[in-house]
Design a protein around this nucleic acid. Structure first.
Lengths: 132, 132
DNA sequence: TTCGCGCTTCCAGTAACTGGAAGGTCAAGC
DNA sequence: GCTTGACCTTCCAGTTACTGGAAGCGCGAA
């Protein structure tokens, strides 16, 4: 599969896909003409990268998460530790996004679309959900 | 309030706070000695920036979201449109994070922490939740 | 008054792309 | 067979969003 098709399937620009190869996140085959040749596994990894990057994980964190995906022979103890750590972070992100969503929902519901200026939910945006 | 205290309260490094001032996201007062003097409103904005940046929104997107927070006199129609657009994106991110969480939970539950190599959830990580 | 910590600006470096030039590949149409 | 245009290649430069470090001022405590 050529890079264009993979770009479409993964939602990542071709430039980014080549960059991910440069930094060792994928290793596509090459054809005789020099073109990269991607497998479905590559597509899966790239889809995964697209998602987790857009959710605020760094490339190095994605590399860790990908190692859970790829290295089946790895020590399960280590896999479990990494996964558990990431799980907590993900739960936190979900909670924060839900807080943000509720605040915005409130905003949309209360600012009726006319020109009334008052929007009494303002403090919500500053994030009391994570103040505990 | 000095930048050190604000850094602690917002979870952002002082360097980043100064950078956000450079690009016009906040405008703290100055004291006679040249020190920046932050208000609680500044702290709220910075907390908000910290959260939304870590959730994968770009600085420009954060600027838009902040404009919802700050510009009470703005046309409510426009506010409503921006907020509605962001809401959809947030809902999507929540769904994706939940998918990622469920997959990792499965991984943690099934890889018992010993050295059994098989982890049969592997395909989950590539993200069929967003394949629809 | 001097030690140390916190503040200032400025400039350079890093992470993660992103755009563009210069050129090779390939299927389609004349 | 040749050309056109879309797609591929590498390489190098630019952008975004910080991040680190140097050089220097402010200020409360010993």
């Amino acid at each position: 599969m050529n890079i264009g098709a993979v770009s479409e399937k993964s939602g990542l620009p071709a430039k980014t896909i080549r960059y991910y190869e440069d930094i060792g996140l994928i290793r596509p085959d090459r054809r005789e003409n020099g073109y990269r040749d991607y497998s479905m596994e590559d597509v899966h990894r790239l889809r995964f990268l697209q998602r987790s990057r857009s959710l605020g994980f760094s490339v190095e964190e994605c590399r860790q998460l990908l190692s859970l995906y790829g290295d089946r022979g790895r020590e399960s103890m280590e896999v479990k530790a990494i996964a558990s750590g990431k799980l907590q972070e993900i739960e936190r992100k979900i909670t924060e996004l839900q807080g943000l969503r509720d605040t915005l929902k409130h905003l949309v519901a209360n600012c009726h679309g006319d020109s009334r200026p008052e929007c009494p939910i303002i403090d919500g945006l500053s994030g009391e959900t994570s103040v505990h």
